[in-house]
Simulated assay, not measured.
Amino acid sequence: MIIFNRIKTNLSLIFSKDLCKELPTIAKNIKKYREKLDISQDKLSKLADIAYNVIIKIESGATLNPTIETMAKIAKGLGVSIDDLMKYIMESEKNLVVKNTQNGKGVFAIKKFGKGEIIFEFHGKFFTYKELPTPYNGVEDHYVQLGENLYMGPSGGIDDYFNHSCSPNTGLKINSKKVFLIAVEKINEGDEITWDYSTTMDENDWEMDCECRSKNCRHRIRDFKYLPRDIQQRYLSLGIVPKYISRNF
């Protein structure tokens, strides 16, 4: 279930670069754990089974958004969880901007992203189904299903403005209670960043009209099980369908 903002405004919201700089980055976290273990970058590359120059680029900041698969290997090499390694990531926010769209607000890229790159980490309070607010305020509340009985609510930040598209360029990857938005294709500067809400929906009691206007628009946002088979298979192959849904397909 996700209910998103349709309020039109003339204001644009840009997240502060200075704020992001005050927070630990991926590079700082990797270096911190590596130095704690007293191992070199070369040693870490061998432990993680990834190329030495990949470690160098990430730690130097040349690669701001390594893939979640790369981060999982590095976390394993450092002997920490991927949650510990990634929980302070805010670097990506300076690459995003919230501005007006034809349907209200949306999030746009202000740099290029490659397929598989981490775009953003979602933040918000967790709810069970019974804890969801009643009644829903359809123009202000933002809820996304993350499990059979687990939902994430609005954060009050940039993650409340990622719109749905039936032709998305990103998808969600859920690791425990960590939620990452991952590029599923190349994203250019100026592109709106969207994901298909149906990829996490498995409820039967909520749906909404779609106004994405993409050439593949289905005109209705419904549970994953109602998607055409070819679309289901594509999303499953991209790894953006959570286990509580994918195990049934």
Rank of each mutant, 00 (worst) to 15 (best):
F120K: 04
N100I: 09
T194A: 02
Y151A: 07
P133S: 09
M201K: 15
N149H: 12
I89W: 03
L78K: 03
F122M: 10
G171N: 02
P133Y: 02
D191Q: 02
I89L: 12
G77H: 03
S167C: 10
E91S: 13
G116T: 12
M90Y: 14
I182Q: 00
E148M: 08
G104E: 01
D160Y: 03
E121V: 11
N163M: 07
K112M: 10
Y88W: 11
I193L: 15
K173H: 09
K99Q: 12
K94Q: 14
N175I: 15
V184R: 06
I182F: 07
S165V: 06
D84I: 10
V139Q: 03
W206Q: 07
S155F: 05
N188V: 02
G114Q: 12
I110F: 00
Y151H: 06
V144L: 13
F122I: 00
C166N: 04
G147E: 01
D141E: 12
E117Y: 07
N149I: 12
G79F: 05
E203L: 15
F108A: 10
F127C: 02
K186V: 06
N100E: 12
L150C: 06
S198Y: 03
I74Y: 08
N103L: 11
V179E: 04
P135K: 06
G153D: 02
N163F: 00
L172I: 01
T128L: 09
G190A: 07
G156C: 09
Y197E: 04
I118K: 00
F126G: 11
G190E: 06
M86A: 02
F113V: 08
K125A: 15
Q145T: 08
S92E: 14
T200M: 11
G156M: 07
I118D: 02
D159N: 08
M201H: 05
P133C: 10
P168T: 05
A183G: 05
L181Y: 01
Y143I: 00
D202N: 15
E203M: 13
M86W: 05
E93P: 01
E93F: 12
D191S: 13
I119M: 08
D159K: 04
D159F: 09
V107M: 01
P133R: 05
F162D: 08
K173R: 15
K111Q: 11
V98G: 04
F180D: 08
G153Q: 05
V179D: 01
D84H: 11
E148S: 13
G190D: 07
E91C: 13
L85D: 02
N204M: 12
S167R: 12
N103E: 13
I74A: 06
G116C: 14
G138L: 14
S167Y: 10
L172G: 06
N95W: 01
V98H: 00
S198T: 01
E140M: 12
E189K: 15
I119P: 06
Y143N: 05
F108C: 09
K130I: 09
N100D: 12
K76I: 07
I89C: 11
G171D: 05
I193H: 06
S165N: 10
P168Y: 03
M90Q: 14
V97C: 06
K94I: 15
